[in-house]
Amino acid sequence: MLEGKFEEASLLKKVIESIKDSVKLCNFNCSQSKGITVQAIDDSRVLLIALKIDSGSFQEFRCDRDLVLGLDLESLSKILKQGNNEDYLTIIAEDSPDSLLVVFEDKKKDRISEFSLKLMDIDSDVLTIDDMEHDCSITMPAYEFAKIARDMKTLSESLQIIITKDSVKFNAEGQIGSGSIILKPHTDMEKPDESIKIELNQPVVLTFGAKYLNDIVKATALSSTVTIKLTDKAPALFEYRLPSGYLRYYLAPKFDD
């Protein structure tokens, strides 16, 4: 049996809102040691999502046997919208479940609401993702990266990211013209999350589909910072930290044809 209680429903709500536009169906793998893990590829096969909600993200977590919950994320999102952000949220499944029980408890009122979500059998390919060495890593405020991704998409379908030891440059060239945003590393002592940190082994220039970057920044509400790891001719890793765990997006770069 699985029983996981979140202190606040907002965490799972934000996670699902971050991925449901990229992936419609996915398996939630549940185990006592790993908590909940998900690996899913978006419908256009360009973006891979890796989610880990450790047991530490829960107020209470128990999973007697490894379980796979096949979920339609659009349906789960509808159910999660029934509860308030501050409610306790408990998810419960039997050992061979055909449904997931979702329970909201209002902390102030004596109100408990229960919903049952039908589960599905979902075939999915699982890929091995090793901890790769990266040419460079940038950590920056999540909202700032989101603004860049959204603004630059209005200019071009592609966004080029150029990293040197002194700066990170976002470059877009489109039919109406072009634009670039240059950020330099700095440390904000009072608000550390406002800092921009660049770690560089070697400079990198990569181009990504602006559409997918805009899918990724839907996770902005999850974390105050985003870490972007880039390697020449390899997928970029965009990581949003959870209180205990992470939401990672691996995005395939574009190449000159």
């Binding site: 096969r45 360009v46 699982v126 890929l127 091995t128 993702i129 181009t207 997928p235 995005l251």
Partner: peptide
């Protein structure tokens, strides 16, 4: 022109 490869082409199936 730019080509967009699949993410699967970068990883090994488990």
């Amino acid at each position: 022109d730019e080509a967009q490869p699949s993410i699967k082409s970068f990883f090994i199936p488990d």
